[in-house]
Design a protein around this nucleic acid. Sequence first.
DNA 1: ATGCAAATTGACAACGTTGTCATGCATGAC
DNA 2: GTCATGCATGACAACGTTGTCAATTTGCAT
Lengths: 340, 340
Amino acid sequence: MGTATIRDVAKQARVSLKTVSRVINREGSVRDETRERVLRAIEQLGYRPDLSARSLRSAKAYAIGLVYDNPNPYYIIAVQQGALAACREMGFGLQIHPCNSRAPKLAEELRDLVHRSRLAGLVLAPPMSERMGLLRELAAYDIPLVRIISAAEDPRDGFPCVFVDDRDAAYAITAYLIQLGHVRIGFLWGGKQHRSSPERYKGYEKALHDYGVPMSEELVLEGDYSFDDGFRGARRLLGLAEPPTAIFGSNDEIAAGVLAAARAAGLHVPYDLSVAGFEDSPFSRHSWPSLTTSRQRTEVIAEHATRLLIAEIHGDDVKNEGFSPELVVRGSTAPPRPRP
Amino acid sequence: MGTATIRDVAKQARVSLKTVSRVINREGSVRDETRERVLRAIEQLGYRPDLSARSLRSAKAYAIGLVYDNPNPYYIIAVQQGALAACREMGFGLQIHPCNSRAPKLAEELRDLVHRSRLAGLVLAPPMSERMGLLRELAAYDIPLVRIISAAEDPRDGFPCVFVDDRDAAYAITAYLIQLGHVRIGFLWGGKQHRSSPERYKGYEKALHDYGVPMSEELVLEGDYSFDDGFRGARRLLGLAEPPTAIFGSNDEIAAGVLAAARAAGLHVPYDLSVAGFEDSPFSRHSWPSLTTSRQRTEVIAEHATRLLIAEIHGDDVKNEGFSPELVVRGSTAPPRPRP
DNA sequence: ATGCAAATTGACAACGTTGTCATGCATGAC
DNA sequence: GTCATGCATGACAACGTTGTCAATTTGCAT
């Protein structure tokens, strides 16, 4: 028994190929009795339409691509799951495409991907989603796309997107630390190629400003969303003449590095030092103490982005959507120890 | 400019469709000068063969499926990367297919997937890879497959696989703990639907036996590869009249739960309690103290499995391959504190 | 019954590619 | 010069599906 084709179904149901096609595609104009017969034949033969043939003939595509270059497995898995959920619901396939965001001919690479695999469009995750040059090139190739980006508000730049308000979320974390009584709050940057990094920094800066907390250059260090940068950064901050009483790492991995550095310096978190992360990764729940952080519902965001893309493909006009991460208070933050 | 087709290339190079096809597929029997001309046309037009049309016509498939149901993002991302590396090298596409391993009609679901998407075969990750019933059903459907499984030796059951010797690795960890001087070593099981769980348990048991360490039922608890189970299990073990001096969690997530429980009980790891995990996840590197664990080169294993599948598809006869994880000693293990 | 619009159905071509087979041409042995 | 040989090339069909359009049937008002 090879695979049943539409031809086998047609023969079994004693109708033409086209009628079977109509039933499959819910085109209407098929008598109930005929439809029944066809459906029964499909059932009996275990027939499933061949996606290659289908998209070849109809010039429609039944799969979309998910493009990312992000070393964070938790983030990527969540994005994949969200995208898959939307795809399955809408009858689309999903082609994952991890890539190097610094690749010189990324636009060509993606165009080839889209053409070769007949993709209907692309969902772009950060940092690809934030390269205007790339977006314009893809647009020039007429490739439908949706971005997941970091932005405080709808960019209204013509490229559909789902935007996550990292700035606001970082503001909330910083404000929370200030309300606990901290005035010397260290900030460790994420990677510069991610738009989320300056956004998070801006949130930090704005909270300090709004609450009248003096800004201190020496408390802000660059980095790259990595454990090691968190460790090194924290060590440097803790070695200052007047060290911070709290450190805000731009993501949970940085915060993990901060926890380790604090430990190595013999400090007790949160009594000697408060630590906050960003992301609500499993690490933040499983570390000791567990991390105060910011929860972004990545899966929901990705699912929404995918739905948006599919709507765009169907020609509906789509409205960008914003999401705000939510403060999650756990055990790594406390009021500062009174100065001796 | 729409997408260039083979027809455009043929026209531009002033040859027939078939000749272009021959050049693309390296079929030989094309004069160098002609080939040059065709390649130049391909280059100029940015032509890329359409995978749908290609596989439709040739009845060959140019993509394989990766099937998993595993809640561990680090593991899955590593598997994906390994599989993708092999696929890209061999010119195949990769279709990911997360699924529910308990789904009642999984075999049918996978068959439909293979047929609809014209997949050349499947790479099965645990626990799907360890369901003999499922394997037999898929074999009955003539679906080529390769498994990634947990086994101490080549199962020689006719289904090609890459096997990972969890037993040996668990033996190494347990032996290491014994050599440090531990004689009461707790063991927390992983999920029963994963073959790796009993394998790891057997390694633990065998090490105790080989070193003449008495086995104690009360030190062994069931669980499910989760942080919470690790936490609960450790709490129970630490509440025993004669608690263990070391706890071996069947994976890093369990071990993370153990670390948290130890912390909650006011114990210092590793001085009051040694903890070992399994997996070498980033958590094990980033926790404090960092975890003694077992490193399985998941990416390499998955890449190898994928290569095996592709060889199988090409009709080569394939030889199963075994991998042994490697002990990674970090800060969570130390000699037991002398009994007071 | 009759006519006519609407609903239902089918024949055929086409999507972009490769497999099969036939053809043309140069090469070298006789 | 003739013939087999093999290489290089092309014409055409086919893969499984859907779009187009025409043919047929149905339903309904007359």
